[in-house]
């Protein structure tokens, strides 16, 4: 596979997390939030796992019913959107084979294929604007609760 066909998450500008099958992504630079579900979340896992577009399509065809061309288009569109949004960038350095998800999978029997649904990249561009819109009464217009943006906190910590 050509190295230019591999992508990586645009860190440190982008953070992401899989939450109950949904990928939530934040572009810290733009303050935009994104969400991927279903086939979108699956493609995301393959993309950041270092698989190329043909490899992703091959993998999806083992799991979903659908026209190869439709699936190819869907994968290319998704990768294009992720690039446009600055979420992923081409991985110029490339990755070694042991760092990548395998492109080919061996079938261990009959798999009931699901119908392929076109993935959607949901986007929320106003999350942080809304924080500024109605600041809590005893704080200032820079928003609530006036924390430095982009500083992740310990999981489970509450706003006290």
């Amino acid at each position: 596979m050509e190295k230019s066909n591999q992508f990586r998450v645009n860190t440190p500008r982008v953070i992401h997390e899989m939450i109950d099958g949904e990928v939530i992504i934040v572009n810290l630079e733009k303050g935009h939030y994104y969400s991927l579900l279903g086939t979108g979340a699956e493609i995301w896992e393959y993309v950041i796992g270092g698989m190329s577009t043909p490899e992703i399509v091959s993998r999806l065809l083992t799991r979903y019913e659908g026209d190869r061309k439709d699936i190819e288009d869907a994968v290319e569109n998704m990768i294009s959107k992720l690039q446009t949004e600055g979420i992923i960038v081409q991985d110029v350095a490339g990755r070694d084979a042991d760092e990548r998800l395998a492109g080919e999978v061996e079938s261990d029997g009959e798999i009931t294929k699901k119908v392929f649904t076109i993935p959607v990249l949901e986007k929320y561009t106003d999350m942080e604007d809304l924080l500024l819109l109605d600041p809590i009464h005893e704080t200032d217009e820079t928003g609530w609760p006036n924390m430095a943006l982009g500083v992740p906190e310990e999981e489970g910590q509450i706003d006290r």
Partner: peptide, 12 residues
């Protein structure tokens, strides 16, 4: 709100 303002995905 803390989860969003801190961009804390585990908290979200």
């Amino acid at each position: 709100l803390k989860a969003i303002s801190g961009r804390n995905l585990p908290l979200m």
